[in-house]
Amino acid sequence: MIFEGDMLTRAQAIVAKYPRPKSAILPLAHLAQDAEGWLSEDAMREIASLTHVEPAEVLGTCSFYTMLKRDPVGKLVVSVCTNVTCLVTGGPTVLEHLAARYGDDPDVTVEEVECLAACGGAPALQVNYEFHENMTPESAEQLVARYKTGELAARGISGGRV
């Protein structure tokens, strides 16, 4: 069980904020991901009972959204932008470098993402939804290394504080 004790209290408070409980699916999915490191089927079943809908409806909603990881991912999710401003300022080489460097590392999931609204500091990336701008392949690798050693404290994989 994810939602028991404190977590259950938090979840119930979230559901109560909305005129209709189904609205709480996304916030509860974020909470579950931060706690468990991904969004499991069991978590979606619990969310279904908390929001009074069928588990299939929770899956139906959650499968629409790229931030919701329905397969396990590394403790660090590195999201590299390659949309047009980052495209012409070096985003693709940052992505290639990180993907090659961390391809076999179970702790690190490198993904390509769309514009992060940080184009004033292109190329940009996020590590567990913390922004980092003006990246080079080298500075990006050093950055991920600092998160790996714990020198930089990472958020949860949904961007919350765990």
Binding site: R20, K22, A24, L26, Y65, T66, V113
Partner: peptide
């Protein structure tokens, strides 16, 4: 005021998709 986090979908910036998403649906 209730703050509601999206979850990675550009289309949810379109106002009616946003409302669907806020209701717990696909955007």
């Amino acid at each position: 005021i209730v703050v509601h986090r999206g979850a990675g979908a550009y289309i949810c910036g379109e106002e009616t998709a946003l409302l669907e998403s806020l209701e717990g649906e696909r955007g």
